[in-house]
Each structure stands twice: as C-alpha cells, then as structure tokens.
Design a protein around this nucleic acid. Sequence first.
DNA 1: ATCGCTTGTTGCAGGGATGTTACAAGGCCC
DNA 2: GGGCCTTGTAACATCCCTGCAACAAGCGAT
Lengths: 221, 221
Amino acid sequence: MRVLIVEDEMELADTVALGLRREGMAVDVAYDGVSGEEHLEANAYDVLVLDRDLPGVSGDEICKSLASGGSPVRILILTASTGIEEKVAGLGLGADDYLGKPFAFIELVARIRALARRLEARVGPKLMVDDVTLDPATHQVHRAGRPIDLTRKEFAVLEYLLLASGSVVSSEELLEHVWDDSADPFSGVVRVVMSRLRQKLGPPSVIQTLSGVGYRIADDR
Amino acid sequence: MRVLIVEDEMELADTVALGLRREGMAVDVAYDGVSGEEHLEANAYDVLVLDRDLPGVSGDEICKSLASGGSPVRILILTASTGIEEKVAGLGLGADDYLGKPFAFIELVARIRALARRLEARVGPKLMVDDVTLDPATHQVHRAGRPIDLTRKEFAVLEYLLLASGSVVSSEELLEHVWDDSADPFSGVVRVVMSRLRQKLGPPSVIQTLSGVGYRIADDR
DNA sequence: ATCGCTTGTTGCAGGGATGTTACAAGGCCC
DNA sequence: GGGCCTTGTAACATCCCTGCAACAAGCGAT
C-alpha cells in the first residue's frame, strides 16, 4: 500500500512515516503543499494523509482539487481542531476520513487500513483466496490453516494481489504501490520477492504468472 | 442509495431515518437484530448503519456473518463506547467505519456519503460482444463467464477487433495498429495470431473472416 | 473440376521475460 | 555496537511468446 504524508511538522511527519513503514506500507513524505502536489502528480498513491494547516498551498485546496479531478486517492485529513463542525467540513471537502491531533498511532493505522480496503476481495477482516488467508490487522498469513511467516515486503505484495481479487497486476503496478520512490524500476526486485513468496506459500501454486502481462492470485473455477 | 438502519433506540433510529430520507436516500429501519437480518436477506443494501449494542442478535454477530459471507454491504457501526480500542476492534470486525454516540447528525450523513462514494469508485469500462468480455484495465478476458488467458499480442488483437465493434478490420490495419514498425507485412503473422486467438476462445466462433477483406467480431442477433 | 489466390494450422528457433540462487548492504532489535 | 533478519543486486537458468516457414485447406472464378 502506497501512502503519501503531507505535513509541515517534520518531526511528526517522519515519526508517522517510520511507523507506517514498519507496518509494511510504502511511504513518501512531503513537508509542504507544493511538494505534496508534485508527489501526487508523479505517483499513484492509495492513501493521502494530509495536514489541513499547511504553509503555502493549504490542505483544503489540495483536497478540493483532487476531488474535483476525480482522483482515486483516499484522503485522510489531520488537523489540530477537533470540533464536529470541522470534521464535517473536512468530509464535505472530499476527504474520506478525518482525525484530530493528537491521535494514537494505532488508530491512524486502523483508519488507513479501512480506507484502503477494497470492496470485492473483502471477505471480512481477512482476505482469503483458496486456502490462503491474510489478516491485515494482525499481519498474519495462513495456508491451509498453517501459519506462514512473511517479511513486510512479501506481506505487502501478497496483500496487494489479494486486494486485486484475481485481477492481473503488472510488476510496474506493484512497484508503484508496494515500493516507494527509491525503488529501481529495472532491478527485478519484484521477481525476487515473488519467488520468495511462492517458496514460503509452497505448492500448490497460488500465484500465477501471465508472461508479458503480470501476476495474479489463482481464483480458478 | 439504499440504506438499512439497525438500532433499538426507536426514537434515534427514526430521527436518523428521516434525516437520511431528506438527503434523498432510500432508508429502511429495523429495531432489533433478528428483524435486521431479515431485511438484509430480503434486500440489496449499499450501506448498513449498525448499532453495536443490540438486544437479541448483537451487532458484532451481524457484522461478522456479513463479512464472512462476502457481502458487499458497507458497514458503519454506531456505539456508545468511544474508546480507541473499541474503534479498532470494530474496524477489525469487518466494519468500514465507526462512529461513537453521541454524534452530530450531519457527521453521520457525511460518513455515509463517503462510504457510498468508495463503493462507486471501481468497475472499469469493459468491452463486450456476445458472451466475450474484455477489461482493458485488468487485462482480463472472459468467454461465457470463464476466464481466458491471452498473451499480449492476442489480447491487443482482440481488443482492436472489439473496439471496431463489428466493423471489418483488414490485416493491414491490424499490422498498422497492433504491431510496430519492425513487423513484416508479408509474413502472415496476423493469420497466426488469429488462429491462436480462435483456439483459445473456443467454439462457437466469434471471429469471422471475410475473404479478401478482413476480420470482424461476430455481432450476431 | 481445376487453377490460383487467400486463409488456417502447425513445428520450430531466437530472444525477451521470468525464476532462482548466492551474496552484499543496510536496518532493526537487543 | 553486534548479530540477525530483511531487502535489493547481479548472474545465471529456464520458460514461453513471437514470428517465420512450410504446408494444408478454403474460396471464387473460369
């Protein structure tokens, strides 16, 4: 899951970014509105964590222009003010959720998760296909009832495939959503992670390759 | 938008229902869990507003059973408790959002809106003729509901034919648009790809040949 | 029916795409 | 700061897509 944080309090921004990375998300940070908009143009983020009170371009403006532009980014607004009126105003602006500072980190994570969850693949709190289940909340993966240890990247890739619910996902798309800016498009990391994932998941194979197109979770019938 | 409210405090339930109807939504109300489940079975709701503390069948149970049943309903949980832990637990249960009582009515509406907006988001435009569908976004092709794996070239050719929507397409035109400069006009590649395409699509034949003219997708009636 | 042209099918080889493994660098936790 | 784990790089092995070529089959006209 690819997240952009736009927040001028650098310390807060970095702390949140670090925490989210530990959760396995691919996180980029922008410390002001202008830079934020540049990032938004350059990359396909799933979730935008947006400070409402920014110097320069305000959070409200960014929010409005995204909403009117039909962007698929889900927006979570952070703000110092906690009044209900404020909340509603924020939601009316096109934001998808709203969180008043100070907030507990765990709540932020839960909210981001809820925002990113997609409709089709959702089977309760867990994602499952065939005999593979993945629980985003606890970071646990099971195959045929047996627990499987995955690293953050492996987990993120599997989660993305499951969220795509059987659609084909190209390595470019994976790079876009599971890795952050620093990823090298030509490195073939995806191939490597995919290989390790398949080994850990074991046979029978759940991840199919369509040569020249991408990967997908088996959703045969 | 179709909404179901399951809430045992009748006054609250009715007030909310009234307000939502004013917003143009189609609203049903159930005052207990059993009745709520009946409604859920009988109708296809977009959003479920669910009280967590219900007499009889609890909100949690409803939530869980919906989630495990793969229902597409978006769930917003209402509750007296506002603690963060509760919220996280609620979201983990498969709910999509969470609102603690007391809440401002306008906020509830805004939340439901946000949920519904997420719902509409996806579903790319598909191309379809007869019982063949092609989704350009996910690179997927189905014939009579069954998924069919195509290579890049095969996919591109089929897509071009479908875009022509029943009109005749010559081999020259295909070479021109599906292949690049390096293609040899005399090689007969089109014939080859066409053959493999037809084999994968299987009978009854969807691609017709007009001798001396070109190919077209069956556009039967 | 036969001829000539167009189209369909199949085997094969080259090359690009993908899978695998070993290794190095960097982060994280103690 | 040390040790472990994770992540990415590089090199190599393997797969399979693609286009070619040769041949078979279809079609229309005489």
